[in-house]
Design a protein around this nucleic acid. Structure first.
Lengths: 351, 351
DNA sequence: GCCTGCTTTCTAATCGTTTAGGTTTAGGTT
DNA sequence: AACCTAAACCTAAACGATTAGAAAGCAGGC
């Protein structure tokens, strides 16, 4: 098409002013049924499609929410998104995902760039699975963009910011207790870096369980992807004098994948030679060899909770703006929530 | 923040005009080093962040491309995205995914709504894994938005539109030949709906192989998600007088999940009672019980190819626009490409 | 002193919408 | 006839950036 039709073209075609056309197209008041029909017909015939950029520039209300994730190949995020989408859809907003570790590794520079980008596009609100830097949280706050933390905790000085966290400490205790019941006393926790705040809680819970039940816990840290996990575990087991632990706990889904491939390469059988447990339930867990015992966070309902909290805040901002007040996000104490996680016992633990 | 700083604020703070400020911030020419430094400093101090909507409205060049998928839980798309992202990143564009079957089911209305939405946001280009309606392809064309089809074929009357397709016919023949070599003569193909054009090719290849090797092929259609697949297969096997086939071929990744859960429920063991094969390789395939024989499309490199084709077209449009020509996408015959798929033989087929 | 050419800067129009505030019109009341 | 009301519509000013086109400043050459 040589020239894309604009509102003005529709206006000229119908003989009505841009005001009336705009109202007609957005189903607003102050338009007669006859005019509305006329406008819609002309718009269709001309192939008019409104320009989102112009709309957003003019009206202040933004409508899309961003979900910040690290490594989309983690099943946890897929379920989370499902929950988020379901809630946002009904309030007419939409979610986009911003993958902060798209290339596999996290860097503070990428974090800054993504936050910068989200401000540029005047995102309505943010749900983040990563602990953002204190500076970035403040920056977003200064732009009146509400943030909800899921899975990862907010930075320490952001005491008001909402969060939906899992009680990873309790969950890890449960996991440890189960291992102890099997009589295993030699555990290895393969962990992602401490940048994700769940890491510390999970380690703390396992440690507590270990000392309580007289077991020994070793912690092995790796980058947050399958390949690194596989290599880290392999080279750990390769170092002479190292004994195979009786039980391995994989810190999350990609790490589990790394562990399983490493074990398969060395033909170590689960659970007879090593017991295996992992954090984060996912669709293929029951179909693995052997079916996997996991700590289940129910990430979909966490997504629902997070999205509900965010929509409430966003609606509050809209309301304030209509009153003429500044649209500062209002956080409530009950927006800081902690949910439980359960152990789904299958066979990889030895059951 | 009470009032968000705009370019104008930076301009007033520095005493320079908006022109100079704009140039300085976008690293353009025509601005002295001293002014540039001054502007950057002021911008930082004020906490200025450019308004994307205003930028996009003013300059014509759009920079984000959309990938249309159906059901993000299909691993195929994750790998595809990885390839797409990698290519786009270097040309300074970014990819967003538009999930057309977010709620699980596809409807033409959702397709229309998504296309409408992509035009509204003046998306630079589209990579789609779904055969769009002929009308939508024409609509996008009239807005000069180039489209590249991957996996699914373009509608029949869109003879110019680029596409990266897999030779599913040949791949299915290979798969069938392998089943025949095992001596299986009774095959069941669990297929997603024909809306995805690969369905027909895959069925045709399997059918051809079946007749060639004297086997019988039954085709069972199901909706394109795990749950439906599980239910469909279960009720198929439940109908009295139905015998268990000797081999099952799952049409794609979610369907495979459905098949495995259905088989597990009825305690049918693979591969001794039924052999199993599936389309689309994915990370967990080697770790399933038993390790899965799959047809591998190498979706990551398909993503790379698609993104390369699209960037070439987009660059061409930019070039044309600079010359003052209309930015119609120019398609080349070699943009219609077909890639091969291989069989990755593991153990679920009986090997 | 005038002209030329170069760099740096400014002015003002523009992109395509929405909307505050005002005006017209039709119809009803008194 | 004079006045009022509400619905329907219009005019024109935003929103916040980019960018032609014009202009100012400066150096060097004649």
């Amino acid at each position: 098409m040589a020239k894309k039709p604009t509102l003005r073209d529709v206006s000229e075609a119908t003989g009505l002013s841009s005001y009336t056309v705009s109202r007609a197209l957005s189903n607003g008041p102050d338009v007669s049924a006859a005019s509305r029909k006329l406008v819609l017909k002309a718009a269709r015939e001309l192939g008019y499609v409104p320009n989102r950029a112009a709309q957003e520039l003019r009206k202040k209300s933004r409508s899309s929410v961003a979900v910040i994730t690290a490594s989309t190949s983690n099943y946890y995020y897929l379920d989370l998104m499902k929950g988020v989408q379901r809630v946002l859809r009904v309030s007419g907003r939409n979610a986009v995902v911003a993958d902060i570790a798209a290339e596999g590794v996290y860097t503070p520079e990428v974090e800054d760039a993504i936050v910068q980008d989200l401000i540029q596009s005047r995102t309505a609100g943010i749900i983040t699975t990563l602990t953002l830097s204190s500076e970035n949280v403040k920056l977003l706050e200064s732009w009146d963009i509400p943030v909800v933390f899921v899975d990862s905790a907010p930075p320490e000085d952001a005491t008001q910011v909402p969060s939906i966290l899992t009680d990873n400490y309790a969950a890890s205790m449960k996991a440890g207790a189960h291992l102890a019941r099997h009589g295993y006393t030699d555990w290895l926790f393969l962990a992602y870096p401490g940048r994700w705040s769940t890491r510390a809680e999970r380690e703390r819970g396992l440690q507590e369980a270990a000392t309580k039940h007289g077991a020994a816990l070793r912690v092995l840290e790796t980058e947050n992807d399958s390949d690194s996990a596989c290599k880290t575990l392999s080279s750990y087991l390769n170092t002479p004098g190292r004994t195979l632990p009786r039980a391995i706990i994989a810190g999350n889904n990609p790490l589990l994948h790394g562990v399983l491939t490493a074990l398969k390469q060395r033909e170590i059988v689960v659970p007879t030679q090593v017991a295996l447990m992992a954090f984060d339930e996912f669709a293929w867990a029951p179909l693995l060899d052997p079916p996997l015992t996991v700590v289940d966070e129910d990430s979909e309902s966490i997504g629902v909770l997070a999205a509900q909290t965010l929509t409430r805040i966003l609606d509050g901002q809209l309301e304030a703006e209509r009153r003429g007040d500044p649209p500062v996000p209002s956080y409530r104490p009950e927006d800081r929530r902690e949910v439980n996680a359960d152990l789904i016992v299958r066979q990889s633990c030895g059951c």
